[in-house]
Simulated scan of single mutants.
Amino acid sequence: MNDPRIRARIGDTPESWPVSASETPFRGRVWSMRSDQVEMPDGSSARRDYLAHPGSVGVVALDEQGRILVLRQYRHPVRQKLWEIPAGLLDVAGEHPLHAARRELFEEAHHEAAVWNVLVDIYTTPGSSDEAIRVFLARGLSESTAERFAVEHEEVGMELAWLPVDEAIGLILAGEVHNPILVSGALALAAARAGDGLDALRAADAPWPARPF
């Protein structure tokens, strides 16, 4: 986006319509369902039900051969094994998103990284959830020398593979992979490489209005 006139017009902005009533009919271990009565600009009122989520982080781990680390994991709601990138919840109170990303890269892939940048920030389904995800780019990879993290549930038996970025883009466009964090992270990586370069990405501690830290 090189035209400053376009940059001045395009960009998400904070806004909050008045809420006259709110309830939480369901509270789960990770997320809850919330029901708000929202006052519309035209003076009417409407109920909006949505999933309240703590937020997540993802890691596009890029090696020196131009490959990204991907994991195959079962996802029960869609009844599929999906190829994904290391990712996890912001479920530790007060934890910095970068620390969470480092933890997920270690726990799910037993890797560490020396160089970190913010790659892309997304809302997964803003019409029905407030889940915000920050996807980091991790470079300078090495296998961790620490004791492996003990996985459980869906993470047991996860497959790990190294996927060339160009092949990832091809699989995305062919409809062969569907995980939104992998899709957005791989496409953002390809765009960054074709644009100003990876070193021009935001710093790993760049502000994140969706989940201030």
Rank of each mutant, 00 (worst) to 15 (best):
Met1Val: 05
Asp3Gln: 11
Arg7Glu: 09
Arg7Ala: 11
Ala8Ser: 06
Arg9Asp: 10
Trp17Met: 03
Ala21Thr: 11
Thr24Gly: 09
Gly28Phe: 15
Val30Ser: 14
Arg34Gly: 10
Arg34Ile: 10
Gln37Lys: 04
Val38His: 00
Met40His: 07
Ser44Phe: 03
Ala46Asp: 11
Arg47Asp: 01
Ser56Thr: 01
Val59Glu: 00
Val59Gln: 00
Asp63Ser: 05
Asp63Val: 00
Arg67Leu: 04
Leu71Phe: 09
Gln73Ser: 08
Val78Lys: 00
Trp83Ser: 05
Ile85Gln: 09
Leu90Ser: 07
Val92Ala: 11
Ala93Met: 07
Glu95Gln: 10
His99Thr: 15
Ala100Arg: 02
Ala101Ser: 07
Leu105Asn: 03
Ala109Cys: 03
Asn117Lys: 13
Gly127Asp: 08
Asp130Glu: 07
Glu131Arg: 06
Arg134Tyr: 15
Arg134Gln: 08
Ala138Leu: 07
Arg139Thr: 11
Glu143Ile: 08
Thr145Arg: 15
Phe149Gln: 09
Phe149Ser: 02
Leu160Ser: 10
Leu160Asp: 15
Leu163Met: 09
Asp166Phe: 14
Asp166Val: 08
Leu171Asn: 05
His178Lys: 10
His178Gly: 07
Ala186Lys: 15
Ala186Val: 13
Leu187Ile: 14
Asp196Leu: 05
Leu198Ala: 06
Ala204Lys: 03
Ala206Glu: 01
Ala210Arg: 00
Arg211Ile: 02
